[in-house]
Simulated scan of single mutants.
Amino acid sequence: MRTTLLALLFLVPTLALAGTPLPDGPHLVVTGEGKVSAKPDSARIRFDFSRRASRPLPAKQQVDAAVNALLDGLHGFPIKADDVRASDLSASEDIDYNDDGKPVSNGFLAERNVTVVLNDLTRLNELLDFGLDAGASGIGNVEFASSHAKALRDDAKRKAVDDARLRAGELATSFNAQIGPVYSINSLSAKLQEGYRYGESTTLDSITVTGTRAQGRYLQPEVEYRESIQAVFELKR
């Protein structure tokens, strides 16, 4: 009777793992989750540049001048030469169509972007302001990271393993069963999440394109590393 009950209990997980090797005897499938949060110590910023002109050459020259102004000023920040990437030029005519379906030119648009890695987050707002002042049309993306990423991911994976074991044990116990050896383990995903949270105190400014300081409490950046594993445990008969 107990074997029949267990077989019914684990029918859904088994179907979810169609195509994955499973033991012939009683077993259970669990998913373990692990996450570790940390304060980042670097940021990857992408500055976007775009200029429009009646001809392609002036648009290109304006974009190049703005990009060069940014690159020339980066020596004043803790940014390594290897951590700077400037894209190739993209230039094309911007065309719309009127109500009669006839093409209407809006001039020529030239675009480039520059990506840099900053290793001193206390100067992040200063760098953003400088990039916009140098002529960037906008800030495409800001990604936070930690130099201890590998250790943090390993810690998250250990937590995921412990969580899987705990879930398996609790589930088996609830049906008066005991877990046996692990039959298989699959790593489902590794994910990095980032964002701001309210902190009691920090020296960081909020990220804004206006250059103004935040009033009151400041925003504290945080990165979160997540790991998910799926484990198949045999059940003791």
Rank of each mutant, 00 (worst) to 15 (best):
T173I: 04
F77Y: 13
T3M: 05
P23Y: 01
A59G: 10
R167E: 00
V232Q: 00
M1D: 11
L70C: 05
V63L: 04
L9H: 03
L192D: 03
L74G: 03
K80W: 12
N98V: 09
S50V: 08
L132A: 12
V67Y: 00
K35H: 13
S90P: 10
L118G: 06
S54K: 15
V12K: 09
T122Y: 07
D88V: 08
A7T: 08
Q178T: 11
V67H: 00
V117W: 08
G135K: 07
L204P: 05
R237E: 04
R197W: 07
L132R: 14
Y196C: 06
R153W: 06
A69E: 10
R165N: 12
R213D: 12
E194V: 04
G107S: 11
V63G: 01
L188A: 07
Q230D: 01
I45D: 01
Y97W: 10
S37N: 11
L188D: 14
F108N: 07
R197P: 06
Y196I: 09
P103H: 02
E170A: 15
R55A: 11
L109D: 03
Q215W: 14
E93D: 12
L71P: 01
D133E: 12
E227W: 05
R153P: 01
R123F: 09
L166F: 09
L22F: 02
A86G: 11
G138H: 08
V36E: 10
I229E: 02
T203D: 14
G107K: 07
E143R: 08
S54N: 10
V67M: 03
K60Y: 11
T210A: 14
H148M: 09
D48K: 02
L219Q: 08
R85A: 10
R217H: 11
P26N: 03
S50E: 12
L15D: 06
A86S: 15
L70I: 10
A110R: 03
L109Y: 04
K60F: 12
L171G: 02
P103N: 11
A91L: 15
R46V: 13
D133S: 15
R123K: 15
A214S: 12
F49G: 01
T122N: 09
T115I: 09
F175M: 15
Y198K: 05
F108E: 02
T203R: 15
V29T: 02
D120N: 15
L71Q: 08
N106C: 08
S189F: 03
L219R: 10
E33F: 06
L6I: 10
D162C: 05
K191Q: 13
D163C: 03
G180W: 00
A86M: 07
H75A: 12
A110N: 04
P23W: 00
L118Q: 05
N113P: 05
S37T: 04
P58G: 10
P23K: 02
V30G: 00
D88R: 14
Q178A: 13
L57I: 09
N119A: 10
D41R: 13
D82T: 14
S147T: 13
A231G: 01
G107F: 08
A151S: 13
G138M: 06
I179K: 00
A160L: 01
Q193R: 12
G107Q: 05
T31I: 03
G216F: 07
R46A: 07
D64M: 11
R55I: 04
T3P: 07
D99F: 07
N176L: 13
N106F: 06
